[in-house]
Simulated scan of single mutants.
Amino acid sequence: MTAPSILLVEDDPSLRVLTMRALQQHGYHVRAAETGAEMWVALDNAPADLIVLDIMLPGTSGIELLRRLRRDSDVPVIFISARVSEPDRVIGLELGADDYLPKPFGTRELIARIGAVLRRHSGEDRGTEERVNEAHFDGWTLSFARRELRSPSGGIVDLTSAEFDLLSVFLHEPQRVIGRERLIELSRSRLGNSSDRSVDVLVSRLRRKLSRGDKDAPIVTVRGVGYLFSEGVTRG
């Protein structure tokens, strides 16, 4: 099998070299870029299976680079940053980042998160039942194998990895109230701490994507507790 290709976008020379070596030692094919301009050149030369993207870059920030990237690409992205504020995590999730790792971090943790994101993105990190089954609710169809959501009209709805994982949790426990901490525990994405707004942001995004005309999405807020998926779900 071809080694996954990782594009590391980091302007700190020592951290860039250290991280590249660690990833290469774990079997990844690694390319590096120091700026956003170099990132675009690298992607033009060859696609990447995953991008490790620093937020604080010279010139164009990692936030803006991800915003532009998401216009036409769903390549997995892990943000790294010395800024660990809640707004950065929320913005990253809103733009479709797959994970967020604050600096300083250990290379073992980064490698573990890269592996987890790649498995989620490829659908390999699912049980046998999920690989062969679909979930159906109110005319919608979620394919666990293809990680694909299809609307009642037949159109495919784009979901980030975090959105897909969160919807999967709801569909496995429909018509039951799920607390915010439990949502984080069950989800395969790293949604952040239950005390921050990461889960609320993802729920809000799912609601928008599941809304049709004047019909609201079937995700109900249970004040002070968590959320409930109000539709019945069938699998098969």
Rank of each mutant, 00 (worst) to 15 (best):
S143N: 05
L7W: 02
L202E: 07
G154L: 06
L8T: 03
S73F: 11
M1V: 13
Y100C: 12
D165W: 12
R207L: 02
Y227W: 12
L206K: 07
H26G: 00
V17A: 11
I178R: 08
R126V: 05
K103I: 04
R113K: 14
G179T: 14
L166N: 14
G36Q: 04
R150A: 06
E129V: 11
I111C: 03
S211R: 10
E94D: 13
A135R: 07
D196W: 02
L118A: 09
T2I: 05
D49L: 02
L118E: 08
V225F: 02
D196R: 09
A48S: 14
R147V: 07
S5A: 13
A116N: 12
A97F: 05
F164H: 15
T141L: 06
L23M: 10
G115Y: 01
E64N: 13
D125R: 15
A82I: 04
P174S: 11
A82Q: 06
V201E: 13
L18G: 13
M56T: 08
K103M: 09
D216N: 12
R205N: 03
E173V: 04
F137R: 12
G123A: 05
R147M: 09
E86C: 02
D12C: 05
R83H: 06
G155K: 15
I80R: 04
Q25A: 15
E185M: 07
R21W: 02
E86K: 13
H29C: 03
D49G: 12
Y28D: 00
I114D: 00
I78A: 05
R120A: 12
L191K: 12
F164W: 14
T234D: 01
I51N: 00
I219C: 01
E10Y: 00
E124L: 13
A82R: 10
A37Y: 05
S73V: 06
R113Q: 07
Y100A: 06
A3K: 12
V233C: 01
S189D: 05
S14V: 12
G192I: 04
F79H: 09
L15D: 03
R208N: 09
S189L: 05
V199T: 10
A116L: 04
D12Q: 11
E129T: 14
L183P: 00
I114V: 14
R71Y: 09
A37G: 09
G232S: 12
D12R: 13
R119Q: 12
E173C: 03
E148M: 07
G236H: 15
G192R: 08
S161H: 14
P47G: 08
S189H: 09
I55G: 00
F137P: 09
I114C: 01
V75K: 06
L50K: 01
V84N: 11
G236W: 10
A3I: 03
G154V: 10
G96A: 08
G192W: 03
V157W: 03
N133C: 00
D74W: 09
V75N: 05
G123R: 04
S122K: 14
P104A: 11
A112W: 01
F144G: 08
E231L: 04
T19W: 05
V201I: 08
T35G: 00
S230D: 01
R131H: 11
